[in-house]
Every structure is written in structure tokens, then in C-alpha cells.
């Protein structure tokens, strides 16, 4: 995908809402920022340093959650979160932190259940837990509100607001607007096309 002339900056306390039609490249842009995709040209900077193509250097500042939840059905929520936490930090996640966070999304009772018994809404909330567990300034969220009922949606928005108030940054791609103050970027305005097409003509 190509985003021509796309430019944005996000600072402490900023919320950026990526909107656009299906296929407009919201997810692609998020994956690009997360460092999962290489940028063919253009720059991506974090602080003063150019970070394009150096995923590991900045992954410690970001949390990304994509379309798929990345949770293992045979493991319990506790096991899933512990292995994720260890994967991202190399540290042991203590049970209390986990339980407090799980409570925040109404998952406390399910903490020792294998993920395969979770409904899709519960699974989605379990996937969002990572934002509460990992203490990182940049949140990259792909469709965070999908499948949430109004109660959990309100919870999520409260957590996001608290994160912004604490000086965090959020870039979220979503169809429906999330009740937060911030800028929005409409990707429909940028002609998203496959990379290096013209050169074949």
C-alpha cells in the first residue's frame, strides 16, 4: 500500500483516530507504525531517532493489538497473560496485577478458564487486557470497540482517557468513533494503491 503525502505526529496525551473505508489501509498503517511492516520510503521517528525498520528498538514503547487476538485457546486467561507479559518484558507477571486488570474488564471470574470457553466478546476483552498490563506510552489499537457491549465500551473509553491523561498516546483504527477528544485522520483521502505499480508500465 502507498500513502502519498501522509504526515502526522502524535505527542503526549494525543489521541489519533484513523478512519476510512474497508481496505483504505487503516490496519496497514497501524502495522507500519508498530514495525511489523517495512516502510519502503518515508520516515518514521520516535523522539529524535529515526525508527523505520528497527522494530525491536521501539517495540518497548508500544503495545499493539491487531484483528486477531493472539490468545491460545487451550491456555487459561492467566497463562495467556503471563506468557504475553514475559514475552514482552522478560518479567514475571504477579497475580495481583493480573487480577486487578481482569476486574477492570469484568473478567476476574474467568481468569482460570481456558480461552476456548470464552465467548467472542469475552475473548476480545481478554485481548484488550494487554493495554492495562503493560505499562507503555504508545497504544496501537485496531478496531478496539468491535464486539463490546455498551458497558464494556464505556470501561474501555475510561481506560483510554486515563491513559491519555497520564501523558500516553493512542492511535486507534476504528469504523465507529470512540468518545475521546482528539484528531482524526481520514485515510479515504489518500489514494492507497499497491506499491511499485507504475514502474511496470
Amino acid at each position: 500500500m502507498v500513502f502519498e503525502g501522509l504526515h502526522f505526529a502524535v505527542g503526549p496525551g494525543d489521541y489519533l483516530h484513523l478512519k476510512g473505508k474497508n481496505g483504505s489501509g487503516k490496519s496497514t498503517l497501524l502495522r507500519l507504525v508498530a514495525g511489523l511492516l517495512p516502510a519502503y520510503s518515508g520516515t518514521l521517528t520516535w523522539g529524535d531517532s529515526d525508527i523505520a525498520g528497527a522494530a525491536a528498538a521501539r517495540s518497548e514503547d508500544m503495545i499493539y493489538s491487531g484483528h486477531q487476538h493472539g490468545l491460545k485457546p487451550v491456555l487459561t486467561l492467566r497463562e495467556n497473560m503471563k506468557s504475553l507479559y514475559q514475552l514482552m518484558t522478560g518479567l514475571h507477571l504477579d497475580d495481583e496485577t493480573l487480577e486487578v486488570s481482569a476486574e477492570g474488564f469484568g473478567l476476574l471470574r474467568l481468569v482460570d478458564q481456558p480461552l476456548k470457553y470464552f465467548s467472542s466478546g469475552q475473548t476480545h476483552r481478554a485481548a484488550l487486557l494487554r493495554f492495562l498490563l503493560l505499562d507503555r506510552p504508545i497504544w496501537l489499537m485496531d478496531e478496539p470497540t468491535v464486539g463490546l457491549d455498551s458497558e464494556n465500551r464505556a470501561r474501555l473509553e475510561a481506560f483510554m482517557q486515563a491513559h491519555l491523561d497520564g501523558g500516553g498516546m493512542i492511535i486507534a483504527a476504528s469504523h465507529d468513533p470512540i468518545g475521546l477528544l482528539g484528531r482524526s485522520l481520514d485515510l479515504d483521502g489518500f489514494k492507497a494503491s499497491k506499491v511499485h505499480l507504475e514502474q511496470w508500465l
Binding site: 525491536a56 493472539g70 490468545l71 491460545k72
Partner: peptide
Amino acid sequence: YEDGSLDDLALSPLG
């Protein structure tokens, strides 16, 4: 790859 945890693995500081 199918359940998305490869994304998390790729973003781990381990590389």
C-alpha cells in the same frame, strides 16, 4: 500465524 500471536512474537524485544 493463524491466531495472530506471531505478531506479538515479532514485536517481542527478543527479536
